[in-house]
Simulated scan of single mutants.
Amino acid sequence: MSHSNPTSTERFKLLLVSIIAAMLIATAMEVFIGVGGSTRIEILSGWFSILFPLLGNLIFPVLYFVGLIFGSYQVSGKEMWWLDLGLVVAIAGLGYAVAEAIVFRERKAKNRDDERARKALHIASNLATCLLIWIFGIRTTSIFVLLLTCTEILLIHLIASGIKVPGMKEWVENVGREGEIPGEGALYNALGVLFALGLLRDHPAAAIAVIIILAMGDGLATFMGSSYGRHKLPWNESKTFEGTVGFAAGAMGAFMVLPTVGTLAIVLLSSIIESLPLKVNDNIVLPVAASLMYYLVL
């Protein structure tokens, strides 16, 4: 999604790597932690992983709606089937994020000189999701997040197609980053939240904790790193010790929701993951990693 006009070769590579990555992730989840059950999440994830590399292509809308209908049919009849659908879309998005990191490994979106507005929106939107879970529960919140995610995917397709979308110019000016399609970060964020809601559907407190780690950890890391960062991390010179401490401090908000030793360990491990020089977008990496850790310890 960072690159709206990939060449034919790049698009083919994205397609191939996306499918392989998504199906491997889904298969690993099914085999090692039993996610999926009667739902063949690797097949559905593989299908949706075809769509992301085709963003901006003329055939995308047809395949997108066929995919939603096919996916809904495959999971229908199960309790909270839309959570299964959201989970496979999120896995496909993660597969595409991995593909982007591999195919476009030399390219990277450039941070804004002033990230405050972007991070304020990041924190506010995620905390609003936590509030929705607390008030309405995971069932209702997940429907809203899934609809929002599907809408965001369509908007990004329109933008990648060169179609002017009202409000996107203002988005770029206020919160967009150079080198990314407007809304890309928000979409990866939504996919990460979908993953958390789908995987932790029986543990709403854990889902809220994951979203707080994403919101407050990432937000405070940026503030501390940009304002007070003086000491570069030896393993990642683009980040600072102060930023990593800020992430851990912000992520500790999860402990207020789920005060367990497991939460402390997950906050620590998430801080380490956030500090690594990963090419994959951290808006999806962090919630996926934290969700899997909570799933294993609960």
Rank of each mutant, 00 (worst) to 15 (best):
T141M: 09
T141H: 07
S142Y: 00
S142H: 05
I143R: 11
I143T: 10
I143Q: 11
F144R: 03
V145T: 02
L146A: 04
L147A: 15
L147E: 05
T149R: 03
T149H: 04
T149G: 07
T149N: 10
I153N: 08
L154W: 05
L154R: 04
L155P: 01
L155R: 06
I156W: 01
H157W: 04
L158Q: 12
L158I: 03
I159M: 06
I159N: 06
A160F: 01
S161M: 04
G162F: 00
G162T: 03
I163Q: 09
I163H: 12
K164G: 07
K164P: 03
K164H: 14
K164I: 13
K164L: 13
K164A: 14
V165N: 11
G167Y: 00
M168N: 06
M168A: 15
M168Q: 12
W171C: 10
W171V: 14
E173S: 14
N174E: 13
G176T: 07
G176Q: 10
G176S: 06
G176P: 09
E178P: 02
E178S: 14
E178F: 05
E180H: 09
G183A: 07
E184I: 08
E184K: 15
G185A: 13
A186N: 11
A186R: 04
L187K: 03
L187D: 02
Y188L: 15
L191C: 07
V193A: 11
L194Q: 12
L194F: 00
F195D: 09
F195T: 08
F195V: 07
L197M: 10
L197D: 06
G198M: 03
R201W: 07
D202V: 02
D202M: 12
H203W: 06
H203F: 12
A205P: 06
A206Q: 11
A206M: 05
A206F: 00
A207Y: 02
A207Q: 09
I208Q: 10
I208A: 10
A209W: 08
V210K: 07
I211M: 09
I211L: 11
I212D: 08
I212R: 04
I212T: 08
I213C: 08
L214F: 01
A215I: 00
A215L: 02
M216Q: 07
M216C: 14
M216T: 04
G217Q: 11
D218Q: 06
G219A: 05
G219I: 01
L220H: 05
L220S: 11
T222S: 15
F223N: 05
F223P: 02
G225S: 09
S226G: 03
S226H: 13
G229K: 07
R230G: 11
H231M: 10
H231C: 06
K232Q: 13
L233H: 01
L233N: 09
L233C: 01
N236S: 08
N236M: 05
E237T: 15
